[in-house]
Design a protein around this nucleic acid. Structure first.
Lengths: 212, 212
DNA sequence: AAAAATCTTACACTCAGTGTAGTATTGTGG
DNA sequence: CCACAATACTACACTGAGTGTAAGATTTTT
């Protein structure tokens, strides 16, 4: 019935994965080549030899064709919160970032690929907007995790403020890392510098609360 | 030629203002009544007895029919920065907010009208997204003002981070004010509480910089 | 009163996204 | 191996936002 078991994936599921990947690959290539706004969903469907509706079947919005990795990020943060010891939430988050940075995790690492990717995003207002939406979604998720970590109701304004500030810090830090990369500087140093300042602020704001 | 002089407004400009106001009024009424997503631009045009194109002539995007006050906000902040004395930028911003709060300025004041307005916004994902876009725009503006205030280049990451954190604080604080209002509590107290914490964080983060 | 500028309108178009119903393909039970 | 159920894919038609254009109406200028 359902392929939730670690069974053989089955022909159907394999084909689905293939189709999805094919569409995504074609779309990314076209977007990078011609710009997001100059490529229609029809173009993607035609190039992928698939019906227009099939594209929307896998990717509800056109923007999803290029942003399809948010779930990984969420899982990462969730895992980090799961086995923090007695660490408070904000320091735990700080440790997570530091760990990712030291381990040169792909999520934070700036490469030629990610540079090109974010250039493509920056050139389209639709993609930029979507990226901000994803930031907000992640901030909301993070806020919920923070609440759960300290046993507060999900509407706690402290958690929402802390999560928003942390996400801003991440975004500005990543932006600086990109800028450094483009100027042949060390991205890691630029990233860490902004993060450090951000954490100083968040820690100060939430000193005395259960969060920091 | 152009009506930049303090001349008589002229019939044409008067009619333009009237038409714009009429469209905006009709739109706001329809959106509040039936919800943003259940009212098409055609509906607005028909009800306002005007061509569809005329609506887009005044309001480039459908969302602009309801968000058309951002310029006032920008001007407010710009004015505050213009005649802060020797105050550092972040404290100046804090003083501005405190002043608006004490003066019960309409921008921050929660009333039955604003409550209803934000309910309408919250019910539509399109409007919520647009509101976030405006927040980002304001944060960018604020960042530029911060840079100008201390004579740094506009790309300064410190300014961008500070601006983003301040806008987050404002948004969360206003959200809490709304929540308080709906729970028959004092909105001002809820608002001020969040603001206080936010400023503690921002001031701590940027202590030692020219910003705070 | 004619001419120039500009506001409004009708019309046609592109493109994202949805709904529906039919066809093809795969999985399953006999 | 064959029905039959489930599900992916497709074709088609539709709504609704937003744009471009050219013609008509109204205001301003000369």
């Amino acid at each position: 019935m359902n392929s939730n078991k670690p069974d053989q994936p089955g022909l159907r599921d394999r084909k689905k994965a293939e189709t999805r990947q094919a569409i995504s690959d074609v779309a990314t290539r076209l977007f990078v080549e011609h710009g997001f706004d100059n490529v229609s969903v029809d173009d993607v469907a035609r190039e992928a030899a698939v019906a227009r509706k099939t594209v929307f079947n896998y990717f509800p919005r056109k923007e999803d064709l290029i942003f399809d990795r948010e779930e990984d990020t969420r899982a990462l943060v969730r895992a980090a919160f799961a086995h923090r010891g007695k660490q408070l939430p904000v320091p735990a988050f700080q440790a997570l970032i530091r760990g990712l940075l030291e381990a040169r995790h792909p999520l934070l690492r700036v490469t030629k690929r990610t540079d090109q990717f974010w250039r493509t995003v920056a050139e389209s207002t639709a993609l930029t907007t979507r990226a901000r939406e994803l930031q907000v979604t992640l901030a909301d998720d993070l806020a919920v995790m923070l609440c759960d970590a300290v046993g507060k109701p999900h509407a706690d304004p402290d958690a929402r403020l802390a999560a928003a500030m942390l996400m801003d810090t991440l975004v500005v830090a990543y932006g600086e890392a990109l800028r450094a990369f483009r100027g042949k500087q060390k991205p890691e140093a630029a990233f860490a510098g902004v993060m450090e300042r951000g954490f100083v602020g968040v820690n100060a704001a939430f000193a005395g609360t259960p969060y920091a």
